[in-house]
Design a protein around this nucleic acid. Sequence first.
DNA 1: AATATTGCCAACCGCCGAGAT
DNA 2: CATCTCGGCGGTTGGCAATAT
Length: 278
Amino acid sequence: MGRAPCCDRKGLKKGPWTPEEDKQLVDFIQANGHGSWRLLPKLAELNRCGKSCRLRWTNYLRPDIKRGPFTAEEQKSIVQLHGIVGNKWSMIAAQLPGRTDNEIKNYWNTHLKKQLRRMGLDEPPPGPTAGCPAARHMAQWETARLEAEARLSLLSSSGAAATATTSGSASSSSTAAAGAAVAERAKPADVFLRLWNSDIGSSFRKAAAPVSVKEEEAVVPGDDSSAASNEMDAAAAEYQMFLDFAGEELGLFHGRHGGFSLFPPLDVLAEASLDTAF
DNA sequence: AATATTGCCAACCGCCGAGAT
DNA sequence: CATCTCGGCGGTTGGCAATAT
């Protein structure tokens, strides 16, 4: 019953790959394709588990992998996407051509997480709402919102007097409202703001806010948590609506724009071509 | 110069869903 | 339908390099 065993787990080499092993693997895949990873090590005469070969190929040897430091645009995309989908590294990687999920995960854990922590925007401490995706991602959401506002002031400064709202991470919904007002006047091709100012964004904000506040409250064991639980469910539902909206309306997770970023480059933004965004 | 500490990242581990038998 | 593996994913770790003391 079932398939044949994956591989003989005895005597297989582990640890860092040597240049010779790399060459063997690359030569074989370029000549034959990887086909079945289970059979590959035997066919390529590698003393490695198929899983190890797959990992080495996808994370390091693949010819289309982009090496080198992350660009500012890539960093932004990672932060924004992480704010939306969380630790779905493969999903984030799919939007960043040439980058692997492992690379992005490492970069997040070693660089971006620290940056956000310095800004006071790291994930909330474990608590009663730790499992609520809406609460968990509000900090990153806020990061993206602040950038949208900064871009708005740049855009509006060319026409009318700029009402810059870059007041830092402590800014509240009032600055969001100010940003929305400017957005209404400027009609920018800003995907984020369109989303933020939509009914979906509005209901998401309303649903998420009480959860964030509750997060700071201590929970006494034995308390009736059904009310809080209901709010968590509501916030999660709103969050799901946002995800659906982002995915279906914006083509966020289908690479429709080829190399996704919520924020197009400023020069593109200045041309304000809505057709390219939707 | 020697040692300790910190940061980085390649690779491993364990879990899970899909699919084969 | 049950059982089992494969392939893929996210979390974690170990070792090396860089930096600080």
